[in-house]
Design a protein around this nucleic acid. Structure first.
Length: 841
RNA sequence: GCGAGCGUGCUGAAAUUGGUAAACAGACAGGACUUAAAAUCCUGCGGGUGGUAACACCCUUGUGGGUUCAAGUCCCACCGCUCGCACCA
């Protein structure tokens, strides 16, 4: 008898796969390629359950498509620049490089223990100069194409991480990583011109048929197209005009004022005005706040504009906090009767409120008006409905050159400068004569200095004189380096391309390899990247294309967004989180031991595993106790991938027991068999098992293809339950169990391989083709048909397959004595072959 | 406020195109084995009514309505939860 010893067998097979280079991938023009990629990890030091889940899902897919005879690429790397390394450096006096490298080493060994089918020859790390050298080249390419530029602007400043953040990286007014409230700060920054592609990025979402609708919708909302018009308002006693963007040009005749953002160009005329300065600062402060502030502030400029269509009508011009610079033109015309915010403002400052849309309630503001509402008090628009009026007014202002139809996007350019040390240096120098120059490509990489001084506050690159001061090679003039580094989302925007040719020296990637492997066929990761990383990557592939690289427009054909790993939470009565492992249950109460007392704790809801809530479970411990295969099988069988997974130690134990049971049952009984020949010799019961096995192959395959892993596992368990119970001839026994092992192999590869080997199979399961369904032996020969009266189940009748309707009715009439069908008047009979027969009475 | 998704046993969940609701698991309970426990095996496990019983009948997919021979699935309204966006002109 062999006992199941996961540690031993997992170690053994991992070594063999590694020695045989089982997961190595190379171009093979004779085979169809399949690129499966999971979002690469940040090397924080330890893998967590989310990683285990993500990479197990990817591994099942990777192994499956390999057996389907695809040429599979399944690489792994490290998103290794970023803040935590720098914080660790400050706290523990260890260099970010060393800290990162040690973490990678540790996490690599943790990942290897999971038994992933990764081609480790392709491993990349973004903090490696062999990677960021090419990234700097890409930056320069972008720079030369005008896709990256520098400008002064108010930016999101994270006071804790002491760096700026892109708009996408501010969540509810807080930094995405630090959680600190973000402030506005004026800085000179590098920007990527992502907004140039707004239209394309939006439109092309329609081509992403294998992306979740939810993600597409989120991107679409983020890009945020609004259609409307731009209208020019002439400033009185001035040559200037104010350009206003509106989505409701038809309400123009209801305009009673103009409101401008405090960052609008006209604000420059007031910079010396003390009162305005105070007002501006107050507005900026309010706009930083997370919570919505309904307070509307106004600063009267004492200036007026001419209403474009009503001679003699003058509108006052205000600055206000409710107009934002980063949308439209930072200027609106106020139509108080039909806009909530304009109404509040007009009320406060006693401005005209002119109703121009007929409405039943007669109450103002009337702002959620409909397409067929009618306009009044609006000159030539009177009597028109909203839809028609929109067209009429746009035509009018266009004809009279007062404005034009226009669209705006919410998406803003992506600020990529970070005032941090541990990132990719921006390859730019500022020469003493004022010229800004990119570094020569043959001078790349601009390497990070290895001796940063973290004792001085601020960016260590800025205080590193030796590194910062340089000379222009062409002219010999003095120059200083750009001391900002790139946002790490820049690093992850093209790593999937680098995986195609990870050691290619000359260029960021080899065109031939990229054209073979790209796009990524299945990309698997968390939904939290729906906007940031996925939008940036889509932009990058387009921008690279514009720079002449031959890359596909869309980098990821199919996207799978996996749910979080959750676990129960507990709190004490004074709101302190308690580890679930310390809690025990007694008389429906949850208790913990505290000293020699027991204290009651409160069970909260299940939440995403996080250190702060003390509900994390270390996958490493689970793997060393139960084995990777148990962990893998549990991760796969509990919930469908896109849904949250509820961690359960009982689930792990039960999964482990199941594997032990099958292992000891099979280990000295099974003879591994690839094919089954003696079909004719089967008894009807064995024939049933043969067909059942075939059906399992069929359904399991379909479930795996559709990412219904939990239901796939259920089908395997049905098969094993049946095989454990049935008595049968050895031939069919060996065949069915061998199929079972081959199917489950993609989920628990060490286990299946070990059992196959113990059963006399000499090769690697990896080298077999995926089992094929014998379609001639799939169907059940006896079917159960539900008999209904008026759609209500009355009984179930067993018949041979494809029974004739009249024959069936005859049998029902004979057998169903109780509901004497012969006495009832049957109006209609509905028969769905092999499923249901319904008598309408 | 706007947009989207989801509500099925004690729990995780399953249910091609509308066609036996609860597959497969977990927890729990009872039994067998054992001096005992663990492990293992067997059985039960949505609710109700009637019956000593095998069994029979009725109800049940958040709530109320509708379409249909037939609804977890389609339509309408409401309630609840989750997520995304949010002074977006």
């Amino acid at each position: 008898m062999n006992y199941y010893n996961p540690t031993k067998i997992e170690c053994k097979w991992q070594k063999i796969w590694s020695e045989k280079q089982s997961h190595k991938s190379e171009i093979n023009s004779k085979k169809k390629k399949f690129y499966v990629l999971e979002m690469f990890p940040y090397p924080s030091g330890n893998i967590h359950m989310g990683h285990l889940r993500n990479y197990t899902i990817g591994d099942v897919v990777s192994r499956f498509y390999k057996l389907l005879d695809f040429n599979v690429l399944h690489p792994m790397g490290w998103d290794s620049f970023g803040m935590p390394a720098e914080n660790a450096a400050i706290e523990n006096k260890i260099s970010p490089k060393k800290w990162t490298e040690e973490n990678i080493k540790h996490m690599r060994s943790q990942l290897k223990k999971i038994g992933l089918s990764i081609d480790w020859n392709r491993e990349i790390s973004t903090c490696n100069k062999n990677y960021y050298k090419h990234q700097q080249q890409i930056f320069i390419d972008f720079y030369e194409k005008g896709l990256v530029y520098k400008k002064d602007s108010f930016v999101n400043w994270d006071p804790e991480d002491k760096t700026v953040l892109a708009n996408e990286q501010v969540i509810d007014g807080k930094g995405w990583r630090s959680g600190a409230t973000v402030e506005k700060k004026k800085l000179s920054q590098w920007f990527l011109n992502i907004s140039k592609y707004s239209n394309e990025l939006l439109k092309d979402l329609g081509e992403l048929n294998n992306w979740p609708d939810k993600v597409k919708l989120m991107q679409s909302n983020w890009i945020g197209l609004s259609k409307g018009a731009e209208i020019k308002f002439k400033l009185l006693n001035s040559k200037s005009t104010i350009n206003v963007f509106t989505t409701k040009p038809e309400t123009l005749f209801g305009a009673s004022f103009i409101a401008l953002s405090v960052e609008h160009d006209l604000a420059k005329n007031f910079t010396k005005d003390r009162e305005f300065q105070i007002f501006r600062d107050k507005c900026l402060k309010l706009q930083e706040k997370k919570d919505f502030v309904n307070e509307k502030l106004g600063f009267d400029t004492k200036m007026h504009v001419q209403h474009p269509l009503l001679t003699g009508k003058k509108l006052p011009v205000f600055f206000s906090n409710y107009v934002l610079i980063n949308y439209g033109n930072g200027a609106v015309f106020g139509c108080p009767a039909h806009d909530e915010r304009d109404f509040a403002f007009a009320k406060k400052y006693n401005l005209n409120i002119d109703c121009i849309i007929k409405n039943k309630e007669k109450e103002l503001p009337y702002y959620n008006f409909k397409e067929n509402d009618t306009l009044v008090n609006s000159s030539f628009l009177n009597g028109s409905n909203i839809g028609a009026a929109k067209n009429l007014i746009i035509k009018k202002i266009t004809d009279e050159k007062l404005g034009s139809e226009s669209s705006k996007f919410k998406l803003k350019d992506w600020g990529v400068s970070r005032q941090r040390y541990w990132g990719c240096p921006i390859p730019i120098i500022y020469r003493e004569d004022g010229k800004i120059l990119s570094v020569d490509k043959n001078q790349l990489p601009v390497e990070l200095p290895e001796d940063p001084d973290f004792s001085i506050s601020g960016n260590p690159l800025d205080s590193h004189k030796k590194w910062k001061f340089t000379k222009c090679r062409a002219t010999g003039l003095n120059a200083i380096r750009e001391t900002d580094t790139l946002d790490t989302f820049f690093d992850s925007s093209w790593y999937y391309l680098r995986f195609c040719s990870p050691n290619y020296e000359k260029e960021p990637f080899n065109e031939k390899e990229v054209s073979y492997w790209m796009p990524v066929d299945h990309y698997i990761g968390g939904i939290e990247h729906a906007i940031l990383h996925l939008l940036y990557s889509r932009f990058f592939s387009r921008a690279l294309k514009e720079c002449g690289y031959k890359v596909p427009k869309e980098p990821f054909s199919k996207l799978i967004t996996q749910g979080m790993v959750c676990h129960e939470t507990f709190k004490t009565k004074d709101n302190k989180w308690i580890e679930p492992s310390k809690v025990f249950e007694k008389n429906n109460k949850f208790l913990i031991k505290s000293g020699n007392k027991t204290v009651e704790v409160i069970k909260g809801r299940s939440e995403k595993m996080s250190k702060s809530k003390k509900n994390v479970v270390d996958p490493d411990l689970i793997i060393s106790k139960f084995g990777a295969d148990t962990a893998r099988l549990f991760m796969i069988s509990d919930s469908p991938p896109e849904r949250d997974l509820e961690w359960s130690i009982d689930g792990i134990r039960a999964t482990h027991k199941y594997l032990e049971k099958i292992f000891s049952f099979l280990s000295n009984k099974l003879i591994f068999t690839e094919n089954f020949k003696d079909l004719d010799k089967l008894s009807s019961e064995e024939r049933e098992i043969y067909n059942f096995t075939n059906r399992t192959i069929d359904k399991y395959t379909l479930d795996i293809k559709n990412y219904r892993f939990n239901s796939a596992v259920a089908k395997l368990r049905e098969l094993s339950n049946k095989l454990l119970k049935s008595k049968m001839e050895p031939t069919i026994f060996h065949f069915s169990w061998s199929i079972y092992l081959r199917l489950i192999y993609i989920i628990i590869p060490h286990y299946a391989q070990e059992l196959a080997s113990l059963s006399g199979f000499k090769g690697l399961l990896d080298e077999l083709k995926w089992p094929r369904t014998n379609m001639d032996y799939v169907e059940e020969e006896i079917v159960k048909i539900v008999v209904q009266f008026n759609g209500k189940k009355k009984s179930i009748i067993e018949t041979s397959k494809d029974i004739d309707k009249d024959e069936l009715i005859k049998r029902i009439k004979k057998n169903l004595i109780k509901d004497d069908i012969n006495k009832l008047i049957v109006k209609k009979v509905i028969y769905v072959p092999n499923k249901i027969i319904n008598f309408v009475i």
